[in-house]
Amino acid sequence: MPEHEKSPSAPSPPSAFPSRTLDPRSLRGLAHPLRMRLLTALRHHGPATASQLADRLGESSGATSYHLRQLASYGFVADDPERGKGRERWWKAAQQSLLFDESLYGDPDPETRGAVNVFMHEVATMHAQELSTWLGTMRDWPDAWPKSADMSDFTLRLSPAQLRELNDRTQALIESYREVEPGEGSEKVRIHLHAFPQQTD
């Protein structure tokens, strides 16, 4: 799962910013394509103004301003008082990561179930966009990066309990690398994990 959608069972990364577990109300407040893109941009690229985010995302500053205020009302973003001059308002992400409570899948409220669908589909869309960007630009990177990157898939026969164990062990391994001193030539690396059942013919 992506950093902003980790399982509650995964260990939380050490950070000055706390993780936050989504509940039905906060999920409904976040489950909008532009809001999710704004929050991701602030997490990945740091504090920014509504105008800067509009330029980055190809949106109007009016739209980004409105949805930033909505995100703030749900506690996902906050003012960054250390930046900006005069009326210029800078925003920052309030948490480093979000935890997706598995009970949301079975919530009886149709609005919450709809928010789950929007959230999941937008995460999948953002993953696809990030991967497409990498494929389109990988020749701009030193040879070591394309040779070290990965785009693999596997098929296993597992029970739900075994799949959860596999996810937990994989996420624990990834989290352990947060404690590793970055090596020479380090860059930010995105890791996407998708694991789901498939009907047998």
Rank of each mutant, 00 (worst) to 15 (best):
T64F: 07
Y105V: 07
F76N: 03
R87T: 12
T64A: 08
R83V: 01
T133Q: 10
E88R: 07
S73I: 10
R69L: 07
L104D: 02
K85Y: 13
Y105Q: 09
F76C: 03
D107L: 10
V77I: 04
R89S: 00
R89V: 02
W91E: 02
R113G: 11
F119P: 01
A128P: 00
T133K: 11
R83C: 05
L135P: 02
L68F: 03
S73Y: 07
E88G: 00
N117F: 05
T125S: 05
G86V: 08
Y105F: 15
E82T: 13
L99E: 11
Y66S: 05
M120G: 07
L71T: 01
G75N: 12
V116M: 11
N117S: 08
D109K: 12
R69F: 00
F76T: 01
Y66T: 06
S73C: 08
S73D: 15
G86Y: 15
G75E: 13
D101Q: 09
L99A: 14
W134T: 01
S132I: 14
T133L: 15
E122M: 05
S65D: 11
K85F: 15
H121W: 01
A124E: 10
V116N: 04
F100K: 04
N117I: 05
A93F: 06
Q129N: 14
A94V: 03
E122N: 03
L71E: 04
W134A: 09
E88M: 05
F119T: 01
V118Y: 03
Q95V: 15
L104V: 10
Y105S: 06
S73H: 12
D101K: 09
L104F: 07
H127I: 04
E111K: 14
F119I: 03
V118N: 05
V77S: 02
P81T: 06
P81V: 04
A78N: 00
T64R: 04
G75I: 07
T64N: 04
K92D: 07
Y105L: 14
S97D: 15
F119L: 09
R89Q: 08
T125C: 00
W91A: 00
L71R: 07
M126V: 12
K92T: 14
G84R: 04
F119N: 03
V77A: 06
M126Q: 15
V123E: 12
S103K: 13
S65C: 06
E111L: 15
H67A: 01
P108I: 06
Y74S: 08
L99Q: 15
M120V: 12
E111P: 04
P108W: 08
Y66V: 04
Q96R: 13
H121V: 02
T112L: 05
E130C: 06
S103H: 14
V116G: 02
Y66W: 04
G114K: 12
D101V: 07
V118P: 03
R113A: 13
L98Q: 01
D109Q: 10
A93R: 01
R113N: 06
V123W: 02
K85L: 14
A115G: 10
A93D: 03
D107T: 09
A124N: 08
A72F: 00
M120R: 14
R89Y: 00
L99V: 11
S65G: 05
Q70M: 07
G114Y: 11
L131F: 13
D80H: 09
F119H: 11
